[in-house]
Simulated scan of single mutants.
Amino acid sequence: MKSPLLSLPGAVLAEGVDDGVAAHYGDLFREQRALADGNGFVDLSHRGVITVSGSDRLAWLHLLLTQHVSELPVGEATEALVLSANGHIEHALYLVDDGTTTWIHVEPGTQEALIAYLESMKFFYRVEVADRTDEFALVHLPAGSIAEVPEGVVVRETAHGRDLFLPRADLETFAAEHGPAAGTLAYEALRVEGHRPRLGFETDHRTIPHELGWIGSAVHLQKGCYRGQETVARVQNLGKPPRRLVFLHLDGSDVHLPPPGTEIRVAADGAEGRKIGVITTSARHHELGPVALAVVKRNVPVDAPLLAGNTAAAQETVVEP
């Protein structure tokens, strides 16, 4: 599904999972600065939108998700995960409840698999699960934005800004009234700066929540009854997840960013040393320069200079070893 906002001046189509919306509109750093100052918006209309309605919706979701949502207050944003039986992350959900319906947005293209899982777990609960991606487009307003939200639009507000579940038919009108538009590259650079993991970027088939710092924000340690809970409890008690998320400052003299998947080694071991991790997201930040998120082995010293491919990198701890 291609966004109609790709017709805006300067729009360049994003690649990979973000295909369908603009990577940028001609000036990456200007777009980043605008978002950092609380101006403009980001078109995230390629993301999946799911609703869960029915009187049992919160109690039912509480049984399936890692987060405590059985008493989620109206309008309060939260995030949650769906884990495999072995505790590996399968889905990341970003939720808000409007009093009658729980609104969820998820990574592009993952909504069908998530809905299939939810439908398989309905049993006798009074819930209705619906894919609303064709009807609603997600739009992000940055923190500090004073833009007026159209009447009746469901809003998910966090410290990082407001996510709007905007009727897709209103997307072009919204853009005309709330510009300037910023692309996903600007949004991703600020996500990297904020150390926020993303499903399919910082995760692989064996990622557990502790490795990415999702404990607390997406996993409630005082609740049970969800798939994968045993792994969460065991790792929490032992305190030894096998890997950890780090933030990297990359050598700015390199012309090219090391792409996701670039192998990381301890600098003292040289380019032929043992692989200790990989770049998961890299970005050019308007103030910090080239930066990245990476997942490395837990026992890598927190002060060790690293090499991402042939690029020197200094690490900041996101998840404590």
Score class of each variant (00 low, 15 high):
Arg47Glu: 04
Arg47His: 08
Gly48Val: 09
Val49Ser: 00
Val49Phe: 02
Val49His: 01
Ile50Thr: 07
Ile50Leu: 12
Val52Lys: 03
Ser55Asn: 08
Ser55Tyr: 04
Asp56Val: 11
Leu58Tyr: 04
Trp60Met: 09
Trp60Tyr: 07
Trp60Lys: 11
Leu61Phe: 05
Leu63Met: 07
Leu63Tyr: 02
Leu64Ser: 01
Thr66Cys: 08
His68Asp: 12
Val69Ile: 11
Val69Asp: 01
Val69Glu: 01
Ser70Tyr: 01
Glu71Met: 10
Leu72Gly: 05
Pro73Thr: 13
Val74Arg: 10
Glu76Asn: 03
Glu76Thr: 12
Ala77Val: 10
Thr78Ile: 12
Ala80Leu: 00
Leu81Pro: 02
Leu83Pro: 07
Ala85Lys: 11
Ala85Leu: 10
Glu90Leu: 15
Leu95Glu: 06
Val96Ser: 03
Thr100Met: 01
Thr101Met: 00
Trp103Gln: 02
His105Val: 01
Val106Gln: 07
Val106Gly: 00
Pro108Val: 11
Gly109Leu: 13
Gln111Gly: 15
Glu112Tyr: 08
Glu112Cys: 10
Ala113Phe: 06
Ile115Trp: 04
Ile115His: 06
Glu119Cys: 06
Lys122Met: 14
Phe124Arg: 14
Phe124Asn: 11
Tyr125Gly: 12
Asp134Phe: 03
Phe136Leu: 15
Leu138Gly: 00
Leu141Thr: 14
Pro142Ser: 10
Pro142Thr: 13
Pro142Cys: 13
Gly144Tyr: 11
Ile146His: 03
Ile146Lys: 10
Ile146Trp: 01
Ile146Pro: 00
Ala147Glu: 10
Gly152Tyr: 06
Val153Cys: 05
Arg156Ser: 15
Arg156Thr: 09
Glu157Val: 14
Glu157Thr: 15
Ala159Thr: 14
Arg162Pro: 15
Arg162Thr: 12
Asp163Leu: 12
Asp163Ala: 14
Pro167Cys: 09
Arg168Gln: 05
Arg168Asn: 04
Ala169Pro: 02
Asp170His: 10
Asp170Thr: 11
Leu171Ala: 05
Leu171Asn: 09
Thr173Lys: 04
Thr173Pro: 00
Phe174Trp: 07
Ala175Asp: 00
Ala175Phe: 00
Ala176Ile: 02
His178Pro: 05
Pro180Met: 04
Ala182Phe: 00
Ala182Tyr: 12
Tyr187Arg: 15
Tyr187Met: 12
